[in-house]
Amino acid sequence: MLTKESIQKIDREIAKYPAGQKQSAVMAALAIAQEELDWLPGEAIEFVANYLGMPPIAAYEVASFYNMYDLEPVGRHKLTVCTNLPCLLSGGVDAAGYLKSKLGIGFNETTPDGRFTLKEGECMGACGDAPVLLVNNRRMCGRMQPEEIDKLLEDLE
C-alpha cells in the first residue's frame, strides 16, 4: 500500500511512543500516507490501522476529525485560505474571493485540470501575516496580496 520510505517514516514515528502505544502514531502515519498518496483513500486508512494494530473505524474517526486530512481526492495543490476574524480584518476573505474568481472554483472544489483545490481554513496561528494560506498542508504563505497570489499560482505547476 505504501512505499518503503513511508513505512520507514511511520516506524520512526512509532518509536517516539512508549511500548504498546503504537496508536499514538496514527496522526503522523495518516499524514505520511496522505503525503504519499495525495489524499486518504479508505484502503490507506485501513492499512495504517492494521499497521498500528487499531480498529479501522478508530483510525477513520481520527482521519475525519482533524481537518487537514483529505478523505476525498484533491488537486495537485491544495490551497487552504484562512478566513477567520483576524485574517478577515486584513483581507483574508478578499484573498479567498480573489482565488475563487481566478481559479473559477469555490471552496471544496478542484479546478478541472486537477491543479488546484480550494479550501476554507481556520486559524493557522499566523494572524500577524494575514492574509494567510497554506499550500498542501505544508507551506505557509503570509501577506498574500494579489501580486503574491498571482506569483504563487504561477509557481505551482
Binding site: K16, Y17, S24, M27, A28, L30, A31, F65, Y66, N67, M68, Y69, E122, C123, N137
Partner: peptide, 9 residues
C-alpha cells in the same frame, strides 16, 4: 519528542 496536530482547534 514532537507530536504534530492536524487541524483541530
Amino acid at each position: 519528542f514532537a507530536h504534530h496536530g492536524y487541524g483541530a482547534y
